[in-house]
Design a protein around this nucleic acid. Structure first.
Lengths: 200, 200
DNA sequence: GCTACAATCTTGACACTGTAAAGATTGTAG
DNA sequence: CTACAATCTTTACAGTGTCAAGATTGTAGC
């Protein structure tokens, strides 16, 4: 897609989101400023305000887009292992972990307190709930094949998400001791985590 | 403790930490600025630099202090239920959750990406590992009484921490759907989470 | 095709932030 | 009592989010 230097950018909104993701990957969350994002997108420092009322709004958009991509990846994996109940859960969890490790700072932004008033961003809420519903369906499939305890699927899904998400967070924060990481690979650790909660 | 208006504050370092905690509770993480902290402590905006090289360093100190208090509470509860293996784990988890809910923003700061280069703050690392070792001991006690699966206690501790911590995070981020929260109290949800991983 | 409008982008400004440098004040070791 | 080191203030600067005013441009209606 060739870029003409017109006054009107054409697709600035998405350009800003992408620029934000790149900056996030390179400079981390503390390096993410509206002005840098604007600069990277090749517009003036105030241009973003035509598309986002706030810095928070841009962050919300970045997070929302992140959830969309997460959904893509997880649902693809879930689909791929649809016929293998014994592996589906671990592969889904692994995809989740990889997504986090792939883009650590974006993942952190998606879940951490950077976005303060989530309630004000309905798209963000919708997209994150869509992810939860996906997990819930996967959980129900696993319950049906006896891989997971029965019980309210939303609560069990919460457990599964919690155990994996908690692990990822501790991993990203560097709170998992070096000695543990030396003994097991991350993949093995995820597997171990899941085995604690899964039946067999 | 009466405050004399001397040039030398006397205990500015701790005063700054406490001021930081207060501001965190009132204005959240985005409202936490070095200058406000200094103002609240009654000193000039540059005074903090005599005690902390960075804003990050102050945040590290706040987090470290938070971990100390968390240790206090968790170890007290663990001790209290030392002779009741059936309840110890849930009470410990509940104390953890309450600690988070008590001071949401400080808890978030302790675990979220606000503190970027944790490695540079050995006290912070030490204090958080001390907490993990405490949990590990509790886990070993629960393994001994058959409440938890056997296996490497550090890994099992990781699972327990992960499942509770993940739940708390999702709770704090408002990612737990309203409908779930209507059906069960938070305490019940914690219990449900733990039951997924505990034996009986 | 022309025109008026609305969307988009730029410029300039402001208050607030973290941080550095230089100097003022004070406790304390010798 | 004095010199020094620790502590605190003052001043300054670049970077930040945000707002208001104006410039540019696509486009709907004639």
């Amino acid at each position: 897609m060739p870029k003409k230097k017109t006054y009107h950018h054409g697709d600035l909104k998405n350009a800003l989101i992408n620029a934000g993701v790149e900056i996030l990957a390179k400079d981390g969350v503390s390096g993410l400023s509206l002005r840098k994002v604007a600069l990277k997108a090749g517009v003036s420092h105030s241009a973003p305000y035509s598309h986002f009322v706030d810095k928070q709004a841009l962050i919300a958009a970045i997070s929302t887009e992140g959830f969309r991509q997460l959904y893509e990846r997880v649902s693809a994996v879930a689909d791929e292992y649809k016929t293998k109940p014994s592996r589906q859960m671990i592969e889904v969890a692994w995809a989740y972990v990889q997504f986090a490790l792939d883009d650590r700072d974006r993942f952190k932004v998606m879940f951490s307190d950077v976005l303060e008033k989530e309630k004000e961003y309905p798209e963000f809420i919708a997209e994150s709930q869509r992810n939860f519903q996906l997990l819930r369906m996967i959980v129900e499939a696993n319950q049906a094949s006896g891989k997971l305890r029965s019980g309210p699927s939303d609560l069990v899904a919460l457990s599964v998400w919690g155990i994996v998400h908690g692990f990822v967070m501790l991993l990203l924060e560097g709170q998992i001791s070096h000695t543990v990481l030396e003994k097991k690979s991350v993949r093995e650790l995820v597997e171990f985590q899941l085995k604690q909660i899964m039946l067999d």
